[in-house]
Write a protein that binds this DNA or RNA. Sequence first.
DNA 1: TTTATATTGTGAGAAACCTCACACTGAAAA
DNA 2: TTTTCAGTGTGAGGTTTCTCACAATATAAA
Lengths: 228, 228
Amino acid sequence: MSNTSFIDNIPIFSVLPSSQKQQLSEIIKMKKMTKGEVLFHEFDAAEGIFFVNEGKVRISKSTPDGKEIALSIRQAGEMFAEVALFCKSGSTYPATAICIESGYVSHIKNDELQAFLYHQPQLAISMFRCLSERLRISQTTLRDVALYGKLGALAATLVRLAEEYGIEDQNGITIKLKLTHEDLGSFFGATRESVTRLLNQLKQQKIITKKQGYLLIHNLELLKEYIN
Amino acid sequence: MSNTSFIDNIPIFSVLPSSQKQQLSEIIKMKKMTKGEVLFHEFDAAEGIFFVNEGKVRISKSTPDGKEIALSIRQAGEMFAEVALFCKSGSTYPATAICIESGYVSHIKNDELQAFLYHQPQLAISMFRCLSERLRISQTTLRDVALYGKLGALAATLVRLAEEYGIEDQNGITIKLKLTHEDLGSFFGATRESVTRLLNQLKQQKIITKKQGYLLIHNLELLKEYIN
DNA sequence: TTTATATTGTGAGAAACCTCACACTGAAAA
DNA sequence: TTTTCAGTGTGAGGTTTCTCACAATATAAA
């Protein structure tokens, strides 16, 4: 009945009482997105913040010469472009968001969310928490990429993806993402050839296998040993 | 007269009216720190947030095998351990903070600042902004380290240090930090030998020189070209 | 099915970076 | 001053990773 159903599926909003959810639903706008669609480009004016309702969005930064690094992949219930919130007017998005699996996203304009948050300290705190968790992840990734070799960075990436997208069964943890070797390499700056070779190393050690196009992790502990 | 004078020197608190500063001064505690002192270790229980009053603090993460990456160097007026705020109880600091230049730091316990912030949305927003700026920087650094080589990462580091610690005069921008080649390398994961060789490359191109122990940047534009 | 296209696999050589060893320099301590 | 020591410079050789080229497989389209 209420049009707040999709808001209920976004964990960060669970701190809100339903009256506030109703209010929120008036400033949040859902729209369809299709695979390949660019939701925003790095350096576009930062207009607002997004939430994934369904589908997946890849957040990435690139260099002028065309190389690209994937920062994260956002799925249902997750927020992105959070850096835009409360930013100075005239700021730009620090990364590009591309839909990699069709679905729906919700969007709230910066100024409207800011006004709303002013009276919802609970929600503001939740968002603060989310932001600080992301800073923590980013700094950890930086450490991994700078200090371990590519094998370590790959291991760290697989561990992180397993935590976020892993489905566990008796065989191990399947990473439910269609990722090419090039996609994987873009998380830590390696070429597809290197990723092929590194993955084969891990396959030889029976740490991972490939099943129906998905990576299957047999031994998460061993994988973690590459990072510590 | 008032004991809020050191609070006045922390920019993020400038949004507070003086009555609130007075209130803040009751929960914030200043203490001396001396060079080499560890303010907290990575994985210590996250008890609170810090502000530098005087001196400098180096924030770093390390690996079990002793390698280390510098995340930032905080100086007077700046906040650190911001990730601790609003974190789940039982959380730990994600990095280590070591004093590299004696001075004073102020400390606020998490729960006390949280209670205070609840009634100070203005300040909460300022802190949110600071956090998101740091996420932006961390993600940019990640891109630099992953996609450019060590020379690019060095250039990016110098540009960032010049912006934060640079003093400009007719000769160029002096980075007012005592940094060994090893310190510099720790920002992006290079050995001291590599840093020596890379710096000499930049010196040959007249982009930088060394003056009285400090790095002097003659051509910031050329340096930036290594990153884009 | 056949065909087209995207993805993966693999070798060989180049480039970047690290490691180790040792010499040099400059600033602080004796 | 001399001594000491942290920091810097540099060569040689090894390792990692990239690049380029091309072959082998999947996967999707016809």
